[in-house]
Design a protein around this nucleic acid. Structure first.
Lengths: 151, 151
DNA sequence: TTCACTGCAAATGATTTGCAAAGCA
DNA sequence: TGCTTTGCAAATCATTTGCAGTGAA
């Protein structure tokens, strides 16, 4: 049974990041954040919406993904030069990329090399990157472990 | 002064990977491998060719980049979801990505965490990824350190 | 009412493809 | 000669944009 009550918390969350809680944004937020962490593309989210009888255009899906990303609710993952992936897990963590299927999965046990929490890439930086230009700072460190089947 | 003698070594190198040494491939190889390591996009290589009075179509540039990559002469670097970058350095190494300008640079001192030579990602794998599916192997580990100016 | 948001369709930009002409073995 | 490769233009694919209509405050 579908819960049609206005989701007070979701409304508040959107307002908190400066986004109007429109029907489309609430519905997409529910799809994105209502079922644990996962990874989506614009196309896959659009499909999910259709399967859930959510009326929303592909353009709005793109807009929403970008707005959510700008607001810090999503994180963009660059693993494939042909499409953009978005991750509902915005914490510092890394990814597996399954080359055969194009799927993404979180690396749950983040290797300790990535540095202490709150210091993205600190360890890597201290080990080998002493030649970082002085007027530059690390925005973030992306690690993608690409896997292929041994078949 | 331009050396117009047939480049015997370049011809041999192409033959060695099963590619016919055509005029276009030889010219692009010269641009790519004749001046130290660097990073190109199809568009940037096409421009370089034009500036060097090399007659080659953009389609052929794309074909050639993919052929060279398949042959192991180039390595594709995924840092930007809007274009493809290719690196003439095919050794295990990592990248800086300058978010402001879209430029790429090699990280020269590869942090030792990446594992011993010949064992891509060995160290990372041994530290944290014990839950790797048994029928999967690490194709490679990509690390991109994204930088932004502090301005 | 007012301004943000949405949806559609057209535009864009990178990349790929079909196919005839040109080039290498 | 026979199979590759090239170049052009058209096709594709993901994504963005223009703009009129819709909705939230």
């Amino acid at each position: 049974m579908v819960d049609v009550r206005p989701n007070v918390e979701a409304v508040r969350n959107l307002r908190a990041v400066g986004l109007r809680p429109t029907r489309q944004r609430l519905a997409l937020a529910q799809l994105l954040f209502g079922h644990g962490n996962h990874h989506v593309t614009a196309e896959s989210l659009y499909e999910s919406a259709q399967n859930s009888d959510i009326k929303v255009s592909l353009a709005t899906v793109y807009n929403t993904l970008h707005q959510f990303t700008a607001a810090g609710l999503l994180r963009q993952v660059v693993v494939d030069s042909t499409r953009s992936y978005f991750d509902t897990n915005v914490d510092e963590h890394q990814h597996f990329f399954f080359e055969d299927t194009g799927e993404i999965a979180d690396i749950l046990e983040t290797p300790e090399i990535l540095g202490a929490p709150g210091e993205p890439g600190a360890r890597i930086n201290s080990i080998g990157l002493m030649d970082l230009p002085s007027d530059m700072e690390v925005s973030r460190v992306d690690i993608v472990v690409r896997l292929r089947s041994t078949a």
